[in-house]
Amino acid sequence: MALRELPFRTAAALCKDTRPAVRVAEPLFRRNASSEAAREVESSSSLEVPPPSEELVKGYDPLARSRLRRRGNKELPPSRYQYRSPKYYRGPLHPHQPPPESDPSSRLFQPGPFSLPRLEQTYQSTIAADLLTLTYQHYPPGYRAPKTDQRLRQWTGDSPYYKNRPLRPPRGKGEVLRLLNEPRTFRNIPKITKVTLHSMVPEAQENSAHMHVAGMILQAITNVRAVSHKARHNVVGWGLRQGRYVSVTSTMEREDAQDFLAKLIDVVLPKIKEWKGVPGSSGDGHGNMSFGLTPDQLALFPEIEVNYDAYPPKMIPGCHITIETDATSNKDARLLLQAIGLPFYGKLND
């Protein structure tokens, strides 16, 4: 390219000196042979904007303007755009508010989407409409849902400190407030929000190479930087010691998640011998489904298969895949995943 441009550049450099010192302003209405044709193609052209009025041209003095700008202390920001959004959010009353997430100067800004994955297209054109049709529940016009009462427990007692306390969660260990199942409308059709890969490597407590290989494999598969996690408790049965790094995760959203799922469903799962499907017992009741892959199955991903030799075969980990959806129940989430192409087997967890 540079060689091809060379004669033009030399010509331009030679012509630079021959140019007149004061250039005569060219008329805005320049008439070329092609202008008639352009008018036929395009009804309104930006070239046909009328020139500025005479007073405006006469009154325009760039030197005076720049002098005024300097004197009036209204200097434009420096040419390098140096605005940095605040690192921490300090509340709504703070004078420095971060820009919205969609602003390119925000720290949370993610560019894109740069592509429209096939799975996304299929969802928009087929799956969303199908799910809406399948799960539509009719309520006659004029029906108003009865108001649900408070599901959190009150603090009952004489203590004055109970006043204004936040309400108590449901009784029982591990009990959480279940999500409400709103009636299905065209606005709350379940869709996939996140996909998380999690790989637990307890051998990494002795040899960190296991952790590094696992992280590299997850990165290669998911296109997302892997995050390592420590063990929170001592678990003798699993050989975990508190505070040691034992697992890596990578969380995908948007295009990454769609691409990963398409790859998983179209390429990897069909290659697994006698894969029964996702166990029907999976699902946390809040629309998240998870299942596992063994090391042999993980090695079937195309990114690993093409350079299988780059990884020590004994260190390739297994992983758990958690698909998070917008659905509020296991049924809805399962229907969505089935429509995408994940079969379920065994007793279903509803």
Binding site: L119, Q121, T122, T126, T135, K331, R334, L335, G341, L342
Partner: peptide, 19 residues
């Protein structure tokens, strides 16, 4: 129609294909 019989878990794998 509102019974929704056979709706849940009804999508066969053969049908669920990406465009």
């Amino acid at each position: 129609a509102m019974l929704k019989r056979g709706v849940w878990g009804s999508v066969p794998v053969e049908y669920a294909r990406v465009q």
